[in-house]
Structure formats: structure tokens, C-alpha cells
Amino acid sequence: MKTPSSPTAAPPPLIELQGVVKTYGQGQASMQALRGIDLRIERGDFVAVMGPSGSGKSTCMNILGCLDTPTSGCYLFEGVEVGALPRNRRALLRRHYLGFVFQGFNLLNRTSALENVELPLVYRGMPAQQRHARAMRALETVGLGGWAGHTPSELSGGQQQRVAIARAIVTDPKVLLADEPTGNLDSARGIEIMELLTALNRDKGITIVMVTHEPDMADFASRTIRFRDGLAQSNGRNV
């Protein structure tokens, strides 16, 4: 009689924060931006992060993006404690696993859409022919295959944000961190960008964490996390 095999352990969440505190300054001048955040983000999640200015959401995003470190508590990425990694390993995590999209697009004005998208691959030392092909595929994914030679000044705001998204996904990240990605766009262009992000989440399995002040944009996410006074609360799945 065979001994039953033990069940396979469930994989850890993609992202987990355990009691994360972030304090700026010292003594009476200290300010606690995060006051003990517990947070789990699973693979394939699409999470909207909302909250008033000063609520701690931007600080949390900086920690998730390895741009800052907690004062105390743990940030785990695929079960690995990020805070225990040396600075160069955190930089590699940021470069190879995370993609970033910003409200202001952050494109280089005098370079083409294709060259903007290629930039993360240049930092990786990828040969020109290979990075050119990957950048073209990324532009085609966001619907701008025919605009590769145009500079940002020749593109609309919505098109510029699509280029920025192509640049963020050209490295095949596991997580896309989007900070107010529709903040500089009108409602119609904002909806187009949200539909694109939804498609990337659904079709490519990219986990998305998005800061937004706009409830109608947050509705595209599968769940919403609300920050207030350095604390966070998930409201479960969006309907």
C-alpha cells in the first residue's frame, strides 16, 4: 500500500507586504507615511489603488517598485524578501520584473517612438537587431505599429501613453506599476488606455497595480485598495 503523497504547497503570492512601516525624518520632525501595511497581490491581479493626497499610496508604490525601502516590515516578491537583497539585486528585480507607466509619459522628445520603446533593452545590452524587433512587437501590441518613426511631438497624448506602455512591456515584466496613467488624458482617451491595460492583464497575464483618483477608471480593475492615513484596506473584488 502506497503512502499518499503530500499535497503540493501553494505558491506564495506574487507580492506581499507584511506590517510595512515607512517613516521619514527623525524625532519630533518624523512623519509616518505607512503605519503597518498588510497587502497581498496575486499573479494576474489588476489592482486599483485609491486615496487622497498624503494617504500613503505613492509611498507604497515606490516600495513596490524598489525605488524605496520600508523602515520596518517585509516586502516579499515571489516569496523573496526584497529588503534583504543588496542594492544591485533590487535594481535587477526592477529592471527585469517590473514595468512602469507614469502620468507624464516620460518619453524622450527628440527620439522616435521605436527608440523610446527600445531604451530598456539598450540598458540590458541587447543587440540592435533583436531589440528593434522586440520594440516593434511591443508597438504593434499597443496599436502603434505604423507610428514607429514618429517623435512624441507628432503624437497625441493617448498615442504617447501607448508608446510609454509599449516601453513598459517590451521587457516582458511580471508586474506593471501605473501611476495615474490616464491623468493627462481626456475621458475618451482614458478609456482607450484602460481598455488596453485590461487586455494586457487578460491576454498576457501581466499583473497590474494602478494608482488613480478616478473611480470610473478604477472600475476597470478587478479589485480596489483604498489608502487613508497610512493604512490600506481592500474592498474585495470589483463588481
Results as ranks from 00 to 15, higher is better:
Met1Lys: 04
Thr3Trp: 04
Ser5Leu: 15
Ser5Glu: 11
Pro12Lys: 03
Pro13Phe: 02
Gly19Asn: 13
Val20Cys: 04
Tyr24Cys: 10
Gly25Arg: 01
Gln26Met: 09
Ala33Gly: 05
Ile37Asp: 06
Ile41Val: 15
Val49Ile: 15
Pro52Val: 10
Ser53Arg: 08
Ser55Ile: 15
Lys57Pro: 13
Cys60Asn: 00
Ile63Tyr: 08
Pro70Val: 13
Pro70Ser: 03
Leu76Pro: 04
Glu78Met: 04
Glu78Pro: 03
Glu78Thr: 06
Gly83Asp: 04
Leu85Asn: 07
Pro86Arg: 06
Arg87Asn: 10
Asn88His: 14
Arg90Cys: 13
Arg90Asn: 05
Ala91Cys: 10
Leu92Cys: 05
Leu92Tyr: 07
Arg94Pro: 07
Tyr97Met: 11
Gly99Ser: 10
Phe105Trp: 01
Asn106Tyr: 15
Leu108Pro: 03
Asn109Arg: 03
Ser112Arg: 01
Ser112Gly: 04
Ala113Asp: 07
Leu119Pro: 02
Val122Asn: 01
Gly125Val: 13
Pro127Arg: 08
Ala128Asp: 13
Gln129Glu: 15
Gln129Lys: 14
His132Arg: 15
Ala133Cys: 09
Met136Asn: 07
Ala138Asn: 10
Leu139Val: 10
Val142Asn: 09
Gly146Ile: 06
Gln159Pro: 10
Val163Asp: 02
Ala164Val: 05
Ala166Tyr: 03
Arg167Phe: 02
Arg167Cys: 05
Ala168Cys: 07
Ile169Ala: 03
Ile169Tyr: 11
Val175Gly: 05
Leu177Asp: 12
Ala178His: 03
Asp179Thr: 05
Thr182Ser: 06
Leu185Pro: 06
Ala188Tyr: 00
Arg189Gly: 00
Ile191Val: 15
Ile191Arg: 10
Met194Asp: 03
Glu195Gln: 14
Lys204Thr: 00
Gly205Asp: 07
Ile208Thr: 11
His213Trp: 08
Pro215Cys: 12
Pro215Ala: 12
Ala218Met: 11
Asp219Tyr: 14
Asp219Cys: 14
Arg226Ala: 13
Phe227Gln: 09
Gly230Lys: 05
Leu231Thr: 15
Leu231Ala: 09
Arg237Ile: 13
Val239Arg: 04
